[in-house]
Amino acid sequence: MWRRAGTAPAEVPRGLCRCVILSLLSSALWATPAEAQRPLTVQGARSLTFGSLLAGVNKTVLRTDVVNGGQLDISGPGRASVLLTFTLPASMTGPAGATLPLSFGSNDGGWSPPQQIGTQTAFDPRVPYTAPLDQNGKVSVYLGGTAKPTANQKAGSYSGTITLTVVVLP
């Protein structure tokens, strides 16, 4: 059968073929434990950045924005899936309890094979979503959103927390 596949040209010495095959088999065998121990990594790649805001003027950052959109890269078992659950703040907290509202829409989440920001599949980051890892166990996740400073937005420090929960499936 393998001759029919044409992988061993007749002029190649049979001994050499054996060596190559054994070498490949050896590589495959040694590759298995490494694959089995592939760690799970969730790594931030880029901030979701709103830049300068004018009081009273909303600012939206698209998940497809290659400069300001948020991006996280996940790696794990090949062809597995990960359940993504964002916990998104409705606002950031500032001085003397002042808040700066944030909003996230049904189209503000996206995923793609690694580093292919232009080929995203959209999802709603406000609800849990299952994204597939590719055959190499990788996926990139993107996040956009809107900052909504009020007309009398108080100056000072504003802070908050976004939590991304990643569950390895299956």
């Binding site: 969730v42 790594q43 931030g44 830049g51 009273g56 100056a155 504003y158």
Partner: peptide, 28 residues
């Protein structure tokens, strides 16, 4: 209102500048 024209800068962090938001975990 004296701050109404103030400029607010907001950054939501998600990554490397985002130092350390994630860890590598093994095994999975």
């Amino acid at each position: 209102m004296r701050l109404a024209l103030g400029i607010v800068t907001a950054v939501i962090v998600g990554a490397t500048g985002l130092a350390g938001q994630g860890v590598m975990i093994a095994p999975h």
